[in-house]
Design a binder for these strands. Sequence first.
DNA 1: ATCGCTGCAAACGGTTTGCAACCTG
DNA 2: CAGGTTGCAAACCGTTTGCAGCGAT
Lengths: 142, 142
Amino acid sequence: MLTLPELREKCRQRGVKLTPQRIAIFECLIQHAGHPSAEEVYQEVLARYPTLSCATVYNTLELLAELGEVREVIVDELRRRYDANVEPHQHAVCRQCHRIMDVEVDAATALRQTDLQTYGFAVEAVTVQFTGLCAPCAAAAA
Amino acid sequence: MLTLPELREKCRQRGVKLTPQRIAIFECLIQHAGHPSAEEVYQEVLARYPTLSCATVYNTLELLAELGEVREVIVDELRRRYDANVEPHQHAVCRQCHRIMDVEVDAATALRQTDLQTYGFAVEAVTVQFTGLCAPCAAAAA
DNA sequence: ATCGCTGCAAACGGTTTGCAACCTG
DNA sequence: CAGGTTGCAAACCGTTTGCAGCGAT
């Protein structure tokens, strides 16, 4: 989870401008633990910037991902989600309520050293995702 | 990889009709190792059934997934892809050409026993995905 | 004859694009 | 002051929906 001064520095290095909109979107992501979609970010920041356009949100999210400030999360084919937690971790996705939970599993960490040379594939990143039922949904089902 | 007679039997049990379109879509998936999208399946089967509609393709792919004959593969947020290989395995996705390769990794197999009780999460399935460069793209880059 | 399946066309929802006006560095 | 950024609106693309007609049991 990076801070605003760090973001400011990164923007300066990259020569991109740190506009109020970008700051607002970044802060929204930091405060939002729930892996929001672009649309959700748009709706939240819209309250502060009534003229905000969705194009700006998409541009900014892409920029933040390039800077390594946020991670794109793909759990379904419909929409991209964003995670301000850029530390190595995995996701547990509830098949009922579709909530996404950050988890940390040792066995998954070991996977990062996986060698796929026999397949002629150079691994750069590993994604692990668990699907199942979160506690509230498991309780509701019983 | 299931066979047509097995599919026929499953359909009979479920009480759904095995139409020529469904057979054609199923065969397309079996022959197609490249994890095709619905659109790609549609285009290929269209050659044999010029009146085929995309709705039928989507319906059939959903049905086949329910029957356990194919697996849905989510590698990007744009489109759903389908895999006729329903055996446990992982995917290696090339960030350059976006090709999807089936791989099998022991360490990933071990992940299936992961216990997320401390998170209050009941694991039902685990997905592992490697991102990197396939051999042709790595060669082209060098 | 019934009930499910198909084909068609329109709707839908997230994302992208082009461009003129604007504002940051 | 220049060039990146914004806002707007329309386009895009994969997917879904409603419905009339068809076909298998």
